[in-house]
């Protein structure tokens, strides 16, 4: 059962990383222009993130 002491925190930490990454993306405005993001893939040499 000692394996649980590693696996459960590992699972939770991975989940938390995902959650924090999403909240960071939300905060940094990456969900503010979904239409623009869809169109921008058509532009050459434009892969900057949102300011």
């Amino acid at each position: 059962m000692n394996i649980l002491a590693i696996l459960i925190p590992a699972a939770l930490v991975l989940g938390l990383i995902g959650l924090v990454a999403f909240l960071w993306a939300l905060r940094s405005g990456q969900f503010e222009d979904l239409d623009g993001a869809a169109e921008r893939i058509l532009l050459p040499e434009d892969d900057r993130p949102n300011p």
């Binding site: 503010e32 222009d33 979904l34 623009g36 169109e39 921008r40 058509l42 532009l43 949102n50 300011p51």
Partner: peptide, 27 residues
């Protein structure tokens, strides 16, 4: 459209002093 994004960012970005221009298509 994507063409508009490119044209607007190029036009505004070319103005003297402008550091960055970024189009928000949804808004």
């Amino acid at each position: 459209c994507a063409g508009c994004i490119a044209a607007i960012e190029k036009a505004v970005g070319g103005v003297e002093g402008v550091e960055d221009a970024r189009v928000n298509l949804a808004g």
